[in-house]
Write a protein that binds this DNA or RNA. Sequence first.
RNA 1: GCCAGCAUAGCUCAGUUGGUCAGAGCAGCUGAUUUGUAAUCAGCAGGCCGUGGGUUCGAAUCCCUCUGCUGGCUCCA
Length: 646
Amino acid sequence: MIDITLPDNSVKQYDEGVTALKVAQDISEGLARNVLAAKVNDEVWDATRPITENASVQLLTWNDIDGKAAMWHSSAHLMAEAIEILYPGVKFGIGPDIENGFYYDIDFMDYEISEKDLVKIEKKMQELARQKQVFERLDVSKDEALAYFEEKGDEYKLELINELEDGTITYYKSGSFTDLCRGPHIPSTGVIKAIKLTKVAGAYWRGDENRKQLTRIYGITFPKKKELDEYLVLLEEAKKRDHRLLGKELELFTFSQKVGQGLPLWLPKGAELRERLETYLKTVQKKAGYAPVISPHIGNVNLYKTSGHYQKYGEESFRPITTPVDGEEFFLKPMNCPHHCEIFNAKPHSYKELPIRYAEFGTVYRYEQSGELHGLTRVRGFTQDDAHIFCTPDQIKDEFNGVIDIIQQIFTALDFKDVIIQISLRDPDKKEKYIGSEENWQKSEQAIMDVAADRGLNAVVEYGEAAFYGPKMDFIVKDAIGRKWQLGTIQVDYNLPERFDLTYIGADNEKHRPVMIHRAPFGSMERFVAVLIEHCGGNFPLWLIPEQAIILPISEKYNEYGKKVLALLDQMGIRATIDNRSEKTGRKIRDAEMKKIPFMFVVGEQEEIDNNLSVRKHGEGDLGKFTVEEISNIINSEVEKMMNLK
RNA sequence: GCCAGCAUAGCUCAGUUGGUCAGAGCAGCUGAUUUGUAAUCAGCAGGCCGUGGGUUCGAAUCCCUCUGCUGGCUCCA
């Protein structure tokens, strides 16, 4: 007999070889039906794997991440089985579960696969799932495994097996499909009720560009049809918020084949919105002691040789710009830091001046592979809300605090409530990889950790993720529908001060090396605006939105009064337009609602006589009558409150 | 860059096996209407069917090139 301890600390006695599934059955049949896997002594196991010693057992269902993982991994096997039946002779790479579903990389040999084939595969999967195939776990020796896949002619599996140690190799068998797999799996395919194969894509074998490209099929499965439907609704919602669609609809930005891919063109409304963001940040930064600087869009090749970027990026960047004079070579600037270093070098500095903070909305150009480009989130020309802080090692902590103040203020003003922070430090085992002195690294890493602790930040520490030149802190926001986006960043740099020989004179009258901090609260204006659009679904905060209000005259008779109101609103600093088309009020309201304009001012005979407006709020409806001054003050105070500038 | 797919009017899309197939809705323009909280009516105008080439008596439709767009290419049996 062995003891099985359940999460509530109750202990039950069973014969040796009992399975988690049996334990579940003893609790209730309903639970047993829903068990996908089990955590046995903190290791995820098949619910059907015999337990041979005293153990703690936690039953995993669809509500557990590990339960979902087992389900999706099993779904990958199910898909492979279906594909092997439909396309005999194909070879399999790997088929793991992922954050949202699963995929399998497959070498389809001579078969041509496109999305049209997915339906066929889905049907076959459904058919196999209904057979309630049981997943069987088998221990095999390395030789056996090699022989099996040798015969099958699957060189991908052979490669994987060769990297494994004998004695640790297991097969999983379900229906006609046997796969090299460490598991765990669900008890049977019967729990897979809803299947959706989502896309076909190419993926290099083991992510290596130099190796063969396999066909990757993505899919997701659910234990209930209803859950699949909900998932599809969420995808639809994400589609509606796509910044590329909304950017077009709201006339914010566009792209042109003639101008070139990855080079966004900002339309008037988008440019105004962006300008408002920039002005806001400039105001905040000015208060925080930043000095504006401006640098050109190109730099001599020697600048980048000094900075080290030439050696690193020279080959995979835009080609150099040459001049009529021999030997002159320029590069489009891929970052602003080298320019800012030279600004620092323009004159000697005393320790009394530090920290020095140079800020610039600097437009940079980077050659991204064409397939990497995506709307405004991945472009070839973009503007960073960049700044570089030059300070002493002892000032790092204060400077981090100052930057975090700015970032939090911005996120609040833009209604990003859910922020995760990632702190990237050195890999403690490979300290030789990093440039800069041990003392300085310790100081900066400690400073960052202290800041996070002092402020009670929701931070995750990643060792080994630091850049070779310094540790960093990244800000990741969750948007309105739960997607994560990396935005702002703060990075310590021990490299460029060295390369540019940056110095300041200390109290001891000796030269010292300053520390450089790169920081960008938005990241880039392009990416930030994209994330903002998707976050608010185009319903921008009142202080940012291009059109705050629209005047809707009941008929052409009241256009004159409307224009008068427009002039008054303008004086009050409200961004408004007028819809003086010969349309019915219902039509004008509908159009304004669709354009997501926050305030609609209906004016007709009554309003003209009383010298006021009927106010309608977007998504809410009629608010009643207000004078121009009253409503302007309401809007302006709302704006002021949101911007939180003191 | 690579794999898969896509490219028809400003936008969203129809166009069956190559032969009155160049269309619709919205937007735009003109006119009528003078409108009270989510679509008034009528008319007009809009496109070398992404580019270049090929097959054919004949190509938006079939083949190739290029350009651009979409999804994917770090989730490790």
